[in-house]
Amino acid sequence: MSLLEVTDLTMAFGGLVANDRISFTLHEGEVLGVIGPNGAGKTTLFACIAGFLKPTRGQVRFAGEDITGMRPDRICRRGLVRTFQIVRALPDLTVLQNVMVGAFLRTHAMREARQIAEEVLAFTGLEARAHTPGKNLTIADKKRLEVARALATQPRLLMLDEVMSGLNAQERQQAVTLVRAIQRRGISILLIEHIMDVLLPLSNRVLVLNYGKKIAEGSPDSITRNPEVIAAYLGSSYASPS
């Protein structure tokens, strides 16, 4: 069953077309990878889907409902949540409190929210940081907090925007393990990474963007053999972890 359906989505900033008639479908339970060089329009695509930008044209359907242009909090309530590439930990709130804000979407009871948050912190390996204010976290922990907070809203579809960039090899491995564990929980994932080596093994299918256009879609294998994709990435450092 298709959970997310994007049809002819176009987002223009004045003359710059950041997303150009993009269409794709994400199936329930799937990890769909999105790759493309910096500036390809990946983050913009997330912003349009999650309600942070109003697409110039096109439609976004989630779980059978048209959510195009809907407010982000309403979309989140329906079970679609995004993380931010430029991390946005709530600085004055502790890690636990950050995650509890997400948990309060589903319950208004303090104890229950705390329980959900603690469970999510254990799942994401952040328990040791529970009482650290958001502003004092390392970049790796901030990225993990982005994921934890999103999970606390109990989503059906989680959209991760470069949660592995800027991490060292060990931290990246932990993140990969976490993404796999999330998928095992039955949560569908739309995953942006510009490093192919990280993204390909995690994805069931891959979508390739370049200059705002979808240039390829298919299995990880077929993507690596696609001449257009190779051309887009040729000579760039994105093909392997820096």
Partner: peptide, 11 residues
Amino acid sequence: NDQTAAAAIGV
């Protein structure tokens, strides 16, 4: 703290 982040998680 950050109303964009708040909106993203359903506030």
